[in-house]
């Protein structure tokens, strides 16, 4: 986002457009709906709730079971004809602005159930508009993170205040071909450290070295 520093008295003003601030805030506080129909939901649980991968690092860990409190619908698992109507209802119950990530082969194209099935939908975009496609069967948690980071970038780049219902063309967030597990993990670590140290480690170190200091962890100083 465009940021300028104000010169003059005080010197601690930050000038930017309100729209940019809101987009930035929105992108970092996505509330996904706990919705999953099959296999991809387990990988989504591994990614979002569980301790190893921990989606909280990217600001999207507040999963909500009610669509009225969520703004991100991660469609995880095959959608069949019978589920299409409830899914549409769920989507419509979510408040604007709302975003949709389609994870896994089934919701992108029908995946293994594309041929000879009398009930599997061939792509969820027949039912609801999709922002980001995450391929995989199922996508590994890092793949889902890549999709969420892509969505966050889209939200930041999109001036969505005046026209919240306006949609951009969907994108595919596929991990590059030939990438190894070690490379993914190294990149994740780098990303975590780059974002995490600023927010957590520095403050933590400061508090540890000076127990009396009040800062990142309010209450720590008082408790001693």
């Amino acid at each position: 986002m465009a940021v300028g520093h104000a010169e003059g008295p005080g010197q601690n003003l930050l000038l930017t457009r309100l729209e940019d601030v809101i987009s930035w805030a929105r992108s970092n506080s996505l509330w996904p709906l706990t919705f999953g129909t099959s296999c991809c939901a387990i990988e989504m649980m591994m990614a979002s709730g569980a301790s190893h991968h921990d989606l909280a690092r990217f600001g999207a860990e507040v999963t909500r079971p009610s669509p009225r409190q969520a703004d991100l619908l991660i469609v995880a698992g095959t959608i069949v004809k019978r589920m299409a109507q409830p899914l549409r209802t769920l989507y419509e119950q979510m408040p604007e602005p709302r975003y949709v990530i389609a994870t896994g082969a089934c919701v992108i194209s029908g995946g293994p159930f594309i041929y000879h099935s009398y009930s599997s939908l061939r792509g969820v975009d027949d039912v609801i508009p999709v922002d980001v496609y995450v391929p995989g069967c199922p996508p590994r948690p890092e793949g889902l993170f890549y999709g969420i980071l892509t969505l966050q970038r889209m939200i930041r780049e999109r001036a969505g205040l005046k026209h919240p219902e306006e949609r951009r063309a969907p994108v595919t967030a596929a991990l590059p071909e030939g990438i190894t597990k070690q490379e993914i993990q190294a990149e994740m670590l780098e990303l975590f450290e780059a974002q995490g140290r600023r927010n957590v480690h520095e403050e933590y170190r400061r508090t540890v070295s000076d127990p009396g200091a009040k800062g990142a962890y309010p209450g720590r100083g008082e408790r001693g």
């Binding site: 029908g110 594309i114 041929y115 009398y118 061939r122």
Partner: peptide, 10 residues
């Protein structure tokens, strides 16, 4: 002999 126009065949 089930027929359905929805079914896709390769």
């Amino acid at each position: 002999d089930y027929e359905d126009s929805f079914i896709l065949e390769p």
